[in-house]
Each structure stands twice: as structure tokens, then as C-alpha cells.
Simulated scan of single mutants.
Amino acid sequence: MVDYDDRLHRVYAAGRAVDQETIDTWMRAYAEVVPAQRPLTVLDLGSGIGRFTPALAETFGGPAYGVEPSARMREQSPPHPRVTYLEGSAEAIPLADSSCDVALLFLSFHHFADQQQALRELHRVLRPGGVVLLRSQFADRMPELPWYEYFPSAPAADAAMYRTVAETQRMARAAGLVPDDELRLISAERPRTLAALYDRVSTRALSTFEHLPAEEIEAGFAAFRRDAEADPDRETPVIPASLMVLRRSH
């Protein structure tokens, strides 16, 4: 498990920032699969520094709840009149039964200590017809991220954090949540130059770096920096993001 109160809270805003265009793309993608009525009550589970929570309230009418166990991350969350940030875990969500229409898990599922209990909790807090938006990686569909070439252990370290698509779907069904037949692939990020990618990754705001040897991190960033300085304007590929949609039918 990664302790975001230790180091990552200090670098997360710089290393994991999302611009408004990216946020808008995600909101449009979510709007395609959630219930049509408005307003919708939204849970942002593992909300971190609240990158998406205010936009969820704006897009779906609110209220929105950002539930995050890290006090240092919550402290950085932006205020919004229809957003409430709460201390809590995925295994014990501090909301009432059948109180939410939508739950967003944006790259947080792999951090949950008991994923099966978390899915049961999501079933509990969702109303019938509610939707879980599970933005995650999956061990059998890992992306080939452009910065992996500098850190040979990173792909395996990342894959080890995630479950396969089939495992995740089985767990969801066991909790009473029905997966849509196919993953959705969302191209929300904008292209970055190699120099911009280096600046972003070098913050070490990705939890991947909590699992790599120090010598590999040092050597990898040295090579990454050399390439970024030699060819700063090289455009790096945009990797589509995986979104699994789970529905509470009853």
C-alpha cells in the first residue's frame, strides 16, 4: 500500500495535474453512460486532491462527495458549494445506503486494501440503476507508456498492482454490480512533448516509483533527462485510458 501522507501529497498537484480540456473530455464520456436525469448525486471515491470532484458537481448537478483517506491530499482539494470532502475508506464509505447515483473511481481501485468489500460498499451506497465508473488499468491490458523505456521494472511493477479484466468483472458481479460487455477506451489526454513528459514524470507523483529500486530510478531519470534535453519537442503518443462501467440493477 502507498502512503500518500508521506511524500506523494507534496508532489501530486504538480505531477498529476489535469487541464480543463481533459476534464471536459472525461465528463462527456461519463455523461454517455450514467442515468439521464439531473441532478445526480456523485461519489468520487479516492478523490485525492479533488482533481475531478468539482467538475462532477457541475456536470451532474450535485451534490458530489469526495471520499479520501489521506488528510494531506484532502487539504488540497478545491472548495465548491456543492462538494463535500470526507475522510473515509473504500471499505467503509461514510455515506448512507442508496444515497448516490454515480460513483467515480479514477485510478484508485488498485489502492483499496479490500477490493471486494469496496465493491460491496459501492453497491450499498448506490441507488438501483446507479453506475460505477471504474477508471483503472488492468493486468492483462497494460498500456505501453512512453516513459517505461527508462525504467525496465516499471511495467511489471504496475501490472502487479492491478487485476485482470475478468477478475475485476467477477468481483463486481459477486458484489451485485453488473459490468457492461466491453471496456470503453477514452482518449482524454493531450499530446505532450518529451520535455513536458519528463517534467511531469520527474516529480515522481506516480505511485509506480514507490515500488522501484532507487538505483533504477536514478539511472532512468538521468537517461530520460538526456533524451528530453536532446530532443525536447518530440511528441509522445497519447495512450487511450480504460473505463469499466458497472451498474447496480437492483
Rank of each mutant, 00 (worst) to 15 (best):
L243G: 03
M142T: 02
D114E: 12
R38I: 12
V67M: 11
T193S: 15
A57C: 11
P143Y: 11
E21W: 06
L177I: 10
P69T: 05
E121F: 05
G220E: 02
W147G: 06
P155L: 06
T84Q: 15
Y162I: 00
A57M: 09
P128M: 06
S136R: 01
A103W: 03
P237M: 03
H110N: 06
G61F: 01
Y198H: 14
Y198I: 00
E167H: 05
V33L: 12
H9D: 04
V2D: 01
H211F: 15
T41Y: 04
G220N: 03
Q37S: 13
M1H: 12
Y150T: 03
L246Q: 04
T208Y: 12
V2W: 00
H9E: 01
L212F: 00
P81S: 04
V83S: 07
Y150V: 02
A36F: 01
R51K: 15
V11S: 04
Q169M: 11
Y4E: 00
M244I: 00
E75Y: 09
F60E: 04
R124A: 07
P155D: 02
R127Y: 06
S136A: 12
P78V: 09
P237C: 03
R247Q: 09
S242L: 11
R226T: 10
Y4A: 01
A228H: 08
P155Q: 07
R190D: 13
A195P: 02
R82N: 10
A113Y: 00
S242E: 12
R234E: 09
L133G: 03
R82W: 09
T53N: 07
F209I: 06
L145Y: 14
P79F: 07
I217P: 07
A214F: 00
L177F: 10
T203I: 04
G130S: 02
P237R: 08
R135S: 13
G66K: 12
A71G: 14
R248H: 14
A36I: 03
R120D: 13
A219C: 03
S89A: 12
Y162N: 10
I93M: 10
L145W: 14
A241L: 13
M142K: 08
P143L: 09
A175Q: 08
A71K: 14
S70E: 06
F109D: 01
P240R: 05
E189G: 02
R51V: 15
A241W: 05
V125W: 05
V132P: 08
Q115P: 13
T168I: 05
H111T: 04
V18M: 15
L86Q: 08
R192V: 00
Q117I: 12
L95M: 08
R72D: 11
S108E: 01
E32R: 15
S207W: 09
Q76R: 15
R184C: 09
R10N: 01
R226V: 00
A118T: 10
A157T: 10
D233F: 02
T168M: 09
S70K: 11
S70D: 06
D158Q: 13
